[in-house]
Design a protein around this nucleic acid. Sequence first.
DNA 1: TAAACTTGATAACATATGTTATCGCCCTAA
DNA 2: TTAGGGCGATAACATATGTTATCAAGTTTA
Lengths: 194, 194
Amino acid sequence: MLFHFKDQFPQLKPFLDKYLEFLKRLEVPTKTVLLEEGKVSQNYIYIEKGCVRAFFNNNGEAKTVQFFFENEGLTSFESFINNSPSLLTIETIEPSVVYLLPKKYVTELVKELVNEPEFTQLILQVSAGRQMHYMNEFFSFIRDTPEQRYQNLLNNRPHIIQRVPQHYIASYLGVTTVHLSRIKRKIAKGKSHF
Amino acid sequence: MLFHFKDQFPQLKPFLDKYLEFLKRLEVPTKTVLLEEGKVSQNYIYIEKGCVRAFFNNNGEAKTVQFFFENEGLTSFESFINNSPSLLTIETIEPSVVYLLPKKYVTELVKELVNEPEFTQLILQVSAGRQMHYMNEFFSFIRDTPEQRYQNLLNNRPHIIQRVPQHYIASYLGVTTVHLSRIKRKIAKGKSHF
DNA sequence: TAAACTTGATAACATATGTTATCGCCCTAA
DNA sequence: TTAGGGCGATAACATATGTTATCAAGTTTA
């Protein structure tokens, strides 16, 4: 969220650069929890290498809602703003290298930036983008069958299918692993006709 | 979105009040379209009386995603910020009285406010709230069965069930009207045991 | 007032998806 | 090297939900 926008909003660069030194580099194995559902987010997270998933717990069953990869940053936005417990757990899927910026510094940074009109622009833009993302995911769930959602992944984000274990993908699509297998078989059959 | 926050952010009040005179009052019948999917939002909308639904079109079938009632304001946020076509149509469900603030004035107002630190606070808060809303709707779709979603409506927002025609509710729940009837019968049966 | 719509319930049948169990493959730890 | 565990495919059966058609009651319109 934060450090991606240096190029787009050059006036903010000096503010952001000041905080680079407070980033903590972390090398972590698979299945490391970076933020736990129900706890207040304590860090802004940036992924240098590897990938993570965001999920929430429903009666012991994990529902995966999003994947993040290299060069992406993430926060539990609402958790940061309102000090409210995170709705999601963030967990690595592969051995990963991440940078953390502790909440304390994020808060400081925001305090400094709140007087910069450019920052308001950035906030508006980031917020609109996030809202767009959740709306699109939401609408896709309503509009598309699981098979169509799988096709969307194949067409638009094949790296996810390549890197992420199938049971997480099934969870993301909203079906069981059994049904995802059926979907894959059906698609494979369809293809073999040509 | 905008005029609700006068009390919470008193410093912004004079800015907001200046624009009250540009609000256009409109009395409209049922099924009036206030914003059409695919078009750029031209107004901030405030509902004085009546109610509206937000839906998108999927192969000729309308998928309802949200209802708004008295004293609520709405914008297609992304559409406003990015001048992008709205993902949703906004249509009245009842004869309604609404106020419109043309985009021109909203833009002006935002330009004035962008230098007010309090405005950034407001933006952060509104954005977090909106994101929370869409996340919750999204997660409820993933987590809950249509029957549970109907129970949630009954428990938390019974006014919706009372005022809104059943086919819109079925669409909102993600099922056919036939299935919603089944759900209602099942719940009625369950109750009659006590 | 009568005709035409709209809304909601219901039945019969079709399809999509979940549940449980089994099998095979690959990887890793002892 | 072998035993166990994680992962994915598949089959058989169960359940949830969609589709189509019909009916009844209420509402709008000519």
